[in-house]
């Protein structure tokens, strides 16, 4: 049984038909990437998975269970966590309070403490600044916080929406290393990226999205070699 399955998902914003029949699967333990131009529907796809937007047709299935009846917060309770586009940290809360919110649904004190130590190990910067108001963190630190906060939920499926956006190249690499590390520790990852080259270099498989439709899907290595992908997303002629 796949971890996540989207079957012919159609989603709308008013009259805008943003997703026009998306089908994809993510298997347990994989990193799957979703690439596509601006406005292709990547963020919208993640929003339909987390329940922030309900598909008009089609189904989103998590470990065999149709998510249609559940609200966003109930879907989080089923093991899905998301780092939203643009980070979405709580600017007025401190770093530690943001991380607390990541673990909102958990009650196992020792488990939460373990997750916190893991996050601080991954991002020592956050530990140094745990009492700082999150709005005053640098962009890169905010991205770390958004990732750390998602990990505090101890998710089985982690959705990442452009985690490299606006980061210096060194930090981008650090973030991608972290994603790989998280994945090796057992978290399944669905990664949306503009930086297709980086995404394809850590992903197992990928989907290419164009105006609300999936136009290509393959293992990452093949996508990297694909002429159309190279031209459109890897900036190669």
């Amino acid at each position: 049984m796949p971890m996540l399955e989207l079957n012919n998902v159609h989603a709308y914003y008013g009259h805008i038909h943003a997703l026009q029949g998306i089908s994809l699967t993510v298997d347990q333990g994989e990193i799957v990437t979703l690439i596509g131009a601006n406005g292709a529907g990547k963020t919208t796809t993640l929003r339909t998975i987390t329940g922030l937007l309900k598909p008009r047709h089609g189904s989103v299935i998590l470990e065999g269970e149709d998510l249609a009846p559940y609200k966003a917060h109930q879907i989080v309770a089923r093991g899905v966590s998301m780092v939203p586009e643009g980070r979405g940290i709580f600017a007025k809360l401190t770093v530690a309070e943001n991380l607390d919110m990541g673990a909102y649904l958990r009650n196992d004190k020792s488990g939460i403490q373990e997750s916190l130590e893991r996050v601080y190990r991954l991002f020592p910067r956050l530990k140094e600044r745990h009492n700082q108001v999150a709005g005053t963190l640098s962009g890169g630190e905010q991205q770390m916080l958004a990732m750390g906060r998602a990990l505090m939920a101890h998710p089985r499926l982690l959705l990442l929406d452009e985690p490299s956006m606006g980061l210096a190249p060194v930090l981008v690499e650090a973030i991608f290393d972290t994603i790989q590390e998280i994945n090796q520790q057992g978290t399944t990852v669905l990664l949306v990226e503009q930086n297709a080259l980086m995404a394809l270099s850590i992903a197992h498989r990928g989907y290419v999205l164009q105006t609300g439709q999936i136009v290509l899907s393959d293992v990452a290595a093949n996508l990297k070699e694909n002429e159309m992908v190279q031209k459109a997303y890897l900036g190669m002629e």
Binding site: L52, A72, H73, V76, P84, G88, F90, M101, L105, A153
Partner: peptide, 8 residues
């Protein structure tokens, strides 16, 4: 929205 993503 982000609060919902925390499970709130």
């Amino acid at each position: 929205e982000v609060a919902m993503l925390m499970g709130i």
